[in-house]
Design a protein around this nucleic acid. Structure first.
Lengths: 341, 341
DNA sequence: GCACTTTCTGTAAGCCCTTACATTTTCAGT
DNA sequence: ACTGAAAATGTAAGGGCTTACAGAAAGTGC
């Protein structure tokens, strides 16, 4: 049996109210009595019962002070990356900064079936920042009971806040960056799903009066499988270099740049001497493994996590306001794959 | 104001005891009344107040059902990596599997000063899995109040459980693996701090009767700074190839292998045709960025996290038992940097 | 129908705090 | 020394639930 306020009060010969006041530092208590109480607490190893506290605080404290960071149906391949870690870290930092706590939850319909995470079930959270979606109806329902914000979905959902990576501006900025170094013919290599990036690319090319040439744009379902990927990118590079005027720089994704380097090397082209290459995502260990190290657009995942958490906290206060879509502009991290023309 | 048992009782015209019995399914309640109660709950959207419940249940329920996963004084460079993510994921999985919840906490003496994380302060956790140490005395004290386990410290501390990556076996296994492919002269390149790995290396070399040659072992304070690192590893490779019989394989760390590839290339040596290279840590995006992709020893971080959490849960049950040091053997992930001799 | 067991149900006490309100003490200003 | 305000302290009322205990209803065997 652990000590209660009564035990402390008796030991320190004060009233329970005084004990409580010392405990919460709410009102003036004479120095001498305070010491007595503190001493008694120390001696009896007093641990206030948190349920009793919660109960006594009553309505005023309906918030649990806990927020969940959820990874929903994220395959390990994606979950186990630096930027997922960054998201989580950002979220946690912001939550901790307000004295709240961050629960980390993974939820996988494949493995868990219809099991709803315990956290949602017993409602010990005020809201959730999540990445990915639940597949099941029942899962969606449970999630929708809480104030929430989704991290970087392909498209902002209509029924909650979202925090997006601004791929358009990122692509725009990297084109502008290359242009500022004198590049006029910039290739775009990516998947057809890179629509937003392509938008940014086109806008920048137009704004800056660079060479417009559809031949410079290669979007194709590049295989994620290694060997085919190399073939795909080889093909892309061959096409680019069969243009009457080949590009002097290539815009792509970190993930493809290894194969791009290789394809360029095959044609005897050196990075960055002959061609500048700029990636996207700034997956550090990837970029730094390449030789030369890859210049890339950082998506600012930590900051995005922080903003998302901040927005969630706002949302918890004001459940009624219109849903917001916040987005964040990336930042170019210079390494060794781009040179001045 | 949300509904209470009284409201339900009134609505269903039963006593609060009956409501409670339905809620907890503890005693027989006639079918008819049970239905009435259930209906009333549904209608009033009854959510039992968890503080009141905790309070009423009293002692029987002293566990909070929450466990913290803490990153203490881990610099971002290390925190934002795939394997940190894997640790966390493993810990979370195991904790969730027992119906508990996982709090994610970062704690940084540099930025936070003497601030103790809220989680420790209000004791809403049953234990903690942590990576890194608090620097301050007061921090250590707070941490030591809880059942805990440390993830992969340089050395197992005497005052808590620890979960270690078995670098010795990992190094041993990779030597054995190379030996099984016909390699007899295997170089070891790393930092002086790679003592455990070196132990495994030597043991394997001896066990398997491979060439013993101190010249094959290069431990030196390789710089973490890019350009110097290249110089350091260049120097290592030069030394190795100035031996009368150079190695046919190199054992190192993922992080150094980029520069090792480059140094080898400089001497006209191709990986894996002329030299096999095997890394350590299996940082996927790093290994896969290299060309050829790097074969590496996976530290099984997810599994280690899981084991650590499991051990912690045990520890919480049996606080008195001797501290344990659990360790886990890695697994070689084959990619393209090793070939049969 | 009676005595007795078994099953249900209700009353009320208690879990351990916080805090409104009442009371006592302290202290400045006269 | 006396007054009134400010500071310190204490008393007691909950807060929403569980559960021991007692009492009512239903079921059993004769």
């Amino acid at each position: 049996m652990s000590a209660t306020v009564f035990d402390i009060a008796k030991k320190a010969t004060v009233s329970i109210a005084t004990v409580s006041r010392v405990l919460n530092n709410t009102q003036n208590v004479s120095h001498e009595r305070k010491q007595r109480v503190l001493a008694a607490m120390e001696e009896l190893d007093f641990q206030p019962n948190r349920w009793a506290r919660g109960m006594a605080k009553g309505q005023k404290n309906q918030q649990t002070g806990q927020v969940a960071m959820m990874l929903i149906n994220i395959p390990d391949r994606i979950a186990h990356t630096a930027y997922t870690m960054q998201y989580i870290h950002g979220v946690q930092q912001e939550i901790a900064a307000t004295g709240r706590k961050c629960l980390f939850v993974t939820w996988n319909d494949q493995t868990d079936g219809d099991t709803i995470p315990q956290v949602l079930l017993d409602g010990e959270i005020d809201g959730v920042v999540f990445k990915g979606y639940p597949y099941t109806e029942i899962g969606k329902q449970w999630l929708s009971r809480y104030p929430r914000i989704i991290l970087n979905p392909p498209a902002a959902p209509p029924d909650c806040d979202s925090a997006m990576v601004d791929y358009e501006e990122g692509a725009h900025d990297s084109v502008a960056y290359l242009a500022s170094l004198g590049h006029r013919r910039i290739a775009f290599v990516g998947l057809p799903s890179f629509r937003t990036k392509l938008l940014g690319y086109r806008r920048a090319v137009e704004e800056l009066g660079l060479d417009v040439d559809e031949g410079l744009i290669h979007t194709r379902n590049i295989s994620l499988e290694d060997t085919s990927q190399e073939l795909d990118l080889n093909w892309a590079i061959e096409n680019l270099w069969s243009l009457s005027k080949p590009p002097t720089a290539i815009l792509s994704n970190d993930y493809f740049c290894g194969a791009i380097y290789k394809a360029l090397a095959k044609r005897g082209l050196k990075v960055p001497d002959d061609v500048s290459v700029i990636g996207y995502d700034n997956e550090a260990s990837h970029c730094e493994a390449l030789i030369p190290k890859l210049t890339s657009v950082d998506i600012e995942a930590v900051e995005l996590g922080r903003l998302a958490a901040k927005q969630l906290l706002d949302r918890i206060q004001k459940p009624q306001e219109r849903y917001r879509k916040i987005s964040i502009r990336g930042r170019i991290v210079e390494r060794g794959s781009v040179r001045k023309l």
